[in-house]
Design a protein around this nucleic acid. Sequence first.
RNA 1: GCGCCAGUAGCUCAGCUGGUAGAGCAGCUGACUCUUAAUCAGCGGGUCGUGGGUUCAAAUCCUACCUGGCGCACCA
Length: 492
Amino acid sequence: MEAENELIRVRKEKLAALRQLGVEPYGGRFERTHSTQEVICNFESLEGREVALAGRLMAVREHGKATFADLHDQAGRIQLYVRLDRVGEAAYRIFTQLLDLGDILGVRGTVFRTRRGEISVEVGDFNLLCKSLRPLPEKWHGLKDVDLRYRQRYLDLIVNPEVRQVFFTRAKVLKAVRAFLDRRGFVEVETPTMHTIAGGAAARPFITHHNALDLDLYLRIALELHLKRLLVGGIEKVYEMGRIFRNEGISTKHNPEFTMLELYHAYADYHDMMDLLEEMVAFVAQEALGTTKVEYQGEVLDLTPPWPRITMLEAIKKYTGVDFAPLSQEEARRAAEGLGLELEPGLSRGKIINEVFEAAVEPHLIQPVFILDYPVDISPLAKKREDNPEFTYRFEAFIAGRELANAFSELNDPLDQRERFEAQLRERAAGNEEAHMMDEDFLRALEYGMPPAGGLGMGVDRLVMILTDSPSIRDVILFPTMRPREDGDSHK
RNA sequence: GCGCCAGUAGCUCAGCUGGUAGAGCAGCUGACUCUUAAUCAGCGGGUCGUGGGUUCAAAUCCUACCUGGCGCACCA
């Protein structure tokens, strides 16, 4: 318990005083006729009529025998006008002396427009629906302290209306993604979040324990392997949008739990996935924002399809001038070092190429672009290119210098898949904690036969960041992971 | 994990090279019946993130720790 400060004490005294007067400070049901927004939008027809509104009292301007106040609800704000000669002495005294900023009220009154032109409600009577005991952050500057904003998101939402807007946009994005895929015949499924084998991506998992089975379980790091089992089972167009968990560092682009969309389309390939992704992102932007040109951190991003498609090797050549295609592993290493990279010993040719790409190319990929044909040794679930088995039919989509999506023509050769897993196991044995685990049941499924398919994974949070001009992933996650604090402020 | 920066009233912030804490908003008292960051007059409010140290004296200097931000690393 924290020490009670004077401001809280005063509010508790008002609470007691209200009860003394027979006013219940925690009301129940209140029937609204309109939202604040509706009153303002429909002023013409509502002028002079009675409305009932509810919301939080966010400002009070007292003028002796008349008082103005601001009432906020989910969609907006409206001014209240309270006159002593209309509400009566007792009610007026309650309004001006026993209410506080932050209290939740139901009001009934008459819609009118003030001399200065502001649409307002002249209050006839009001009900206290909830007495607020804690002082709110400042009305003008709001809540700036990012630590408090994330830990006490409810406060952030109360005083920073633009934050609420971000999460309304997020809701529209989720809805639009589902609408887009549903319309194309994709089936939405839910697969386990607790896995006995954490597969489908290169990442460290969280571990938890099931008591009755006395079994350690991993929180999922990807959706991939279960969704592909569904392809085996005959579901030809399938998707899941859900939370995944990776036991990694936290940054402006990484939260330990985040939302991933994965979809699989039987008999398609990665070219189909490119078509689908660019159309989906454009559709979602149109639905959520009404445009496919969005401003992100001062750059205008044009999400309108088609997006350019360029192979990884071509992209490297374009941004570094070096063509890695003909280089041997040793030559590639020297070329990378010539570009200023420091490389661990023993990296394969494919990994060296990927390092060069990440360091020299990624930061330049501001406008949406597809990067094609990733090296096979960093793509253990993707089908090899027929014309060059060192590379795969895999692409990543980049926007604003970061990866938005990852997709490939899915590997459906069970023998090849087993070899890839075995290569991953060798990496694990060599100390790479993020290398894939062997998944015998997944291999068994492939042995029954999985149709060739295109598969796609997209970071939903990152898309929301772009569409809401948010610099940090924490701005688009309501309750981001934070280290707990002893005073009990935290949520995690 | 490493580096840099920050933490002062409920909130937003000021406080120079050490001299014992200040403003605005919010709160309280009073005035005011069309204000809107209402206005005017007055009042109260602080373990200066935490613990050590230096000093006659520390919000200020040193140090360790806590929390956060940003960058790097890790990471798709």
